[in-house]
Nucleic acid binder design. Structure first.
Lengths: 152, 152
DNA sequence: TATTGTTATACTCTATAACTATA
DNA sequence: TATAGTTATAGAGTATAACAATA
């Protein structure tokens, strides 16, 4: 059997050269490591970072439209359709009529709210685990520095 | 026509709640913004962060095997086959016989070395652009903090 | 027996374009 | 004319499993 593929940020004896100097690669490295822990944490549940974010956004912006959600997530509107379809089928989200008959108001159902509560606890634990090497001050500093990245 | 999908790390008037507190989401946000700039920078070339990394790793670890490269990249061996096929077809990389007849020694061709030189310049510029809001000290700090993330 | 590269296959994510119903 | 949601479709990227050659 094939060993499960795992990302190791730095392999012994391998020269990374320029990659070690790039901020972009440092972020990518961290992101891959974090994703692995997220996936392992939520393995039993059918939830991804993307879907988790969607639930949180809808909970905190009740009545948001699919187009708006697509904008927040940075994906095409067609992608949101599939995500909401899945949530609706699972009974976690509801497409309710909005004033504008072209669009829906997205809302969490009771079951959705309840499940998200559990997800949030798990994700918080995961986040504390992956950032356990940092002090509170360092975490704040890291968030601050990360928020400054990207094309201005 | 559909407006091109772009990721905006923080949309006006949207509540992000927990997401604003998670280190994982901060990294994800940064990663998406960085990727957008990378893609825009390298638009004319058929190169992705993944493929660029492969070229750099092979250049600095000449003779590396596909399995080893897969390990470094954190992807399955089958995925590396397609990547190397593409590079070989483009004349950028060479599969040379190694001592072990089961495996290949990967090497950049002259053309590969030349092209990578250009890519490196472009990627460096991109990296400086996305991190232009940080001082040198802050960049070093960010790299240090990021390297501490992930399951210990 | 184990490892390397390969192929076949499938699944997820995403985009684009065209459609409909509404505005 | 423009916008919201939808569908159809296609292209990456990735994984798993099985295989042949070799160790």
């Amino acid at each position: 059997m094939e060993p499960r593929v795992r990302f190791n940020a730095r392999i012994e004896g391998v020269e990374y050269d320029l990659l070690d100097e790039l901020i972009g690669y440092a972020v990518r490295r961290a992101q891959l490591s974090i994703y692995e822990d997220f996936a392992a944490t939520m393995e039993a549940d059918e939830i991804t970072p993307q879907r988790f974010s969607s639930l949180v956004i809808v909970e905190n912006n009740p009545g948001i439209s699919q187009s708006r959600l697509a904008e927040v997530m940075g994906i095409a509107r067609s992608g949101v359709v599939a995500i909401i379809d899945g949530f609706e089928k699972a009974g976690l989200m509801e497409r309710r009529a909005s004033g504008d008959r072209r669009s829906y108001s997205l809302l969490l159902t009771q079951a959705g709210t309840r499940l998200l509560k559990r997800y949030k606890r798990a994700v918080k634990e995961h986040d504390e685990r992956i950032s356990a090497g940092l002090t509170l001050t360092e975490k704040a500093q890291l968030r601050r520095l990360l928020s400054k990245l990207g094309t201005a």
